[in-house]
Design a protein around this nucleic acid. Sequence first.
RNA 1: GCCAGUGUAGCUCAGCUGGUAGAGCAGCUGAUUUGUAAUCAGCUGGUCGGGGGUUCGAAUCCGUCCACUGGCUCCA
Length: 639
Amino acid sequence: MIKISFPDGRVKEYPVGVTAHEIALSISEGLARNILSAKVNDQVIEINRPIRSDSRIQLLTWNDKEGKSTFWHSSAHLMAEALEAIYPDTRFGIGPPIENGFYYDVDLGGKTLSSNDLQAIENKMNELARQNNPYIRQEISKADAIAYFTERNDPYKLELLQDLEDGQISFYSQGKFTDLCRGPHLPNTGLIKAIKLTSLAGAYWRGDEKRQQLTRIYGITFPKQKELDEYLLMLEEARKRDHRKLGQELELFMFSERVGAGLPIWLPKGTALRQRLEDFLKQEQINRGYTPVITPHIGHKNLYMTSGHWEKYGADSFQAIHTPREGEEFLLKPMNCPHHCEIYGHKPRSYKELPLRIAEFGTVYRYEQSGELHGLTRVRCFTQDDAHIFCTPDQVKAEFLNVLDLTMHVIRKLGFEHFTAQISLRDPENKEKYIGSEENWIKAESAIIEATKEAGLETITELGEAAFYGPKLDFMVKDALGRSWQLGTIQVDYNLPERFQLEYIGSDNSKHRPVMIHRAPFGSMERFIGVLTEHCAGKFPLWLTPEQYMILPVSDKYIEYARIVNQGLRSQGLRGDIDDRTESIGKKIRDNELRKIPFMLIVGEKEQEQGQISVRKQGSGDQGSVSINDFMSMIRQEL
RNA sequence: GCCAGUGUAGCUCAGCUGGUAGAGCAGCUGAUUUGUAAUCAGCUGGUCGGGGGUUCGAAUCCGUCCACUGGCUCCA
């Protein structure tokens, strides 16, 4: 007998060679039906693999991330089987599960697929799934594996095999398909009930653009048709909320080929929205001791040689602007920090001035490859809600905590309930990629880790994701559809103060080097507004939205009264207008509904007589008639 | 930047295998004076992304540049 311990701490005895499926069965039949794979001593294995020694076990179902991964990994194999059946010359790259589904990179021998072909593949997958074929694991020697794929003339699998050690190689087969694979897999294909191949794309073999381009086929599968239907509905909802679509419909921003790709143009309504957002943060920052500054949009090349940005990014930036007579070189600023370092350095600083918090809504220009541009979330010109805090090493943690507090306040105010923080540290394997001393890096990394711990923030830590000049903390928010977005960022920097030779006179009357903290709670105004638009589906909070109300006279006869109401509301600080078109009231309601106006105020004979307005609220319809004062107190809590 | 796809009126889209453009909405004009998601009629509007080529003839075929979309790679 062996001892199996469960996540809840219970320990039960089972015969040697027991499988996860048998263990599940001993608990309940329902569990045995739903179990997809099992985590045994931190390794995920299939549910029919014998367990031969005392182990910790966690039974994985569709509700576990790793259970889904098993499901999708097996689905990738199923897709490969279908592809091989339809296109026998297919060679296979890799086919992993991803966050939502799976993909397989394949070489179709010059054949290009179109989205019409996906349906045929999907049909074949369904047919093969119904055969309910078992996934069979086979351990195989490296020599035999090489022989197998040599015979099948598959260079990709042969290359993968090179990196694997003999004795640790396994094949998985289902139906007529066999693949090199670590596993684990589902017991059989019949569990895969609902299949959708979602998209097609090119992908380089091993992510290297100098190598063969393969066809990547994305798909997603579910154990129940209903779950697929819900997923497709969610995708549909995401399409409706796309900020590029809503931005156009609500006239927030535009792009122009003539102005240039990736250069957003803010229309009046988008500008109103953005300025409100900026004003909110500016006020919040003044309350917290920040000092606003303004700096130019370009800077001398020497500035970026000093900062190190030229060395690191010069070749991949917009190229220098030359003055015609002197031949000087200027760069469009890709960051605000070098300018802010100059502000710090323009006079001798005392420790009594620190922390010095310099804030600027600074517009920066970065060359992004043409294929990267995407709506407002990836652009070549954007405005950071930037600030740099110069402080003593002793103040770092306290300042970091202040910034954490500001950031969380701002994110919550904008209606994001769920967020986590990612701590990005150096890649310990590639320390030469980073600028700055070992000692400084250790100091910076521990300051971040300690501060987030004290703030009680939920964090994940990623090695190798740090900026080249220092470690950072990124805020990830979850939007209304459960999608994660990276927004604000906080970065500790011991490097730039060094490069700019920044100093302050300490209480000991000698010179010290300040520490710099870069931070941007929104990140960029463009990206933030893009994400916010999708989060609230274009129905912005009342305090932000460009137009809070629209007065709809029932007919032209009541325009005069509408003007009086409008004046009353504006004098109370509300934003809105009169829809004075000669249209039916139904038409006006429809149009303003589509424009996502929060309040429609309908005025006709009744209202005029009683000095009231009939309130129609976005999302909940007719609210009845009230006086202007009652309306004001009704909405005041939302402002 | 790379791969694939797309580009027709302000917006959404039609236009089969080449015979030089069409609808709905929006806009304008007129009628209607309207009570909680589209009143009716008429009219205007396009060098079919740009500039080339093939052809008697190109929105349609070919190559090129630009932009957009989905990926890949990148992201201070």
